[in-house]
Amino acid sequence: MICRVGVVDDRSVTFRGVAEVLRASAGIRFLGVFATLDECAAQADGGEPTVVVTDPFPGPGLPARPFGHLALLVMSASRRPADVRAALGRGVGGYICKGADVGTLFRAIAAVSAGDVYLDGELRTALAADGQPDPGRAQEPRPPAEPTAMTRSLTPRERDVLRLVAEGLTHKQIGARLELSKATVDTYVHRVRQKTGMPNKAGLTRIAMELQLTAPAA
């Protein structure tokens, strides 16, 4: 299946290279380079899903509500956990570093295009370590995040499902892992979304990280 991809250019040398790689890929329908998300959305007419590679830092930043048919993949020089969390909170589908190799770029595009969430290992590790006062010194394991009104009622099974969603598994794969039918997994995910108020995988991934349900990458 051909994936439609556009680039919102921050005028960096890195993004010029990204555009060249995408143009040369047989599995990508490259829409072009745009100055803003609005211009890209106008080109990606018809509502057909499109992955947009962009860097909101610095600049106007991410929109409060991303365009429905645009799946955003942030490729930024910022590795700050606060920036990663802010992007996930806005519903982006993936976040990778500007130093990422071509393989990582294409894996991220494929995951975001499929509706999954993609974070490279370096960023997962940074998020897991966020809040450690002295990363150079051995620390006591941090306790899980304090339950809030929206997460306190999650059952153990719902937490299992939430963790696997955050790890990027499909509903079918989660069912195989937990020995449940896909329909049952669909029901669990629906309940988790209702309880957390998160409508998409990006938001669910952020909640899983805050609850420390995901392990840092090796």
Rank of each mutant, 00 (worst) to 15 (best):
L105I: 15
L105K: 10
D134H: 09
V161T: 12
A217V: 00
R142N: 05
Y188T: 01
E140F: 00
T184L: 12
V189G: 03
T151A: 02
P156D: 12
E210N: 04
K172P: 02
I109K: 09
T187Y: 14
A138C: 07
T196F: 01
R193K: 15
L105Q: 08
P147L: 06
P133H: 06
R193W: 03
R177H: 15
P156A: 07
R193C: 05
T151Y: 02
T148C: 03
T170C: 02
A202S: 14
M198W: 01
I207C: 06
T155A: 09
R152M: 14
G136W: 10
L119S: 07
S181M: 02
Q194L: 11
L164Y: 15
P133S: 11
P199F: 01
K201E: 08
T214H: 02
R191G: 00
R157Y: 11
R152N: 08
V192Y: 08
A202I: 05
P133N: 13
T214I: 13
G115Y: 04
T187S: 06
G121V: 00
P143K: 15
P156L: 09
M150W: 12
G115K: 11
L154G: 03
P143L: 12
V102P: 00
D130H: 09
T187K: 13
D116T: 04
A183M: 11
S113C: 05
L119H: 09
L127E: 04
P147S: 05
K201I: 04
P141Q: 14
R163N: 05
Q212D: 08
P143R: 15
L164E: 14
V192S: 05
T151S: 10
A202K: 10
Y188S: 02
G103E: 09
A208Y: 01
A202T: 05
A110T: 14
E140S: 09
G168F: 00
G136E: 10
T184K: 11
T104Y: 06
I174D: 06
A129H: 11
I207Q: 08
T104F: 03
P147H: 13
A138D: 13
G168Q: 09
I174G: 04
A129Q: 14
M198P: 04
N200G: 06
H171F: 06
R193Q: 13
S153V: 13
A217N: 02
G121C: 02
A208D: 00
M209P: 00
R107L: 08
G175H: 13
G131M: 11
E158D: 06
T151N: 08
L204R: 07
G115N: 14
R107E: 08
M198K: 15
S153W: 07
T151E: 12
P156V: 03
P135L: 09
Q212H: 14
E122C: 03
A183L: 12
R193I: 00
A114P: 12
A111T: 09
L180Q: 12
L180W: 10
I109Y: 08
E122L: 13
A111Y: 07
T205F: 00
G115Q: 12
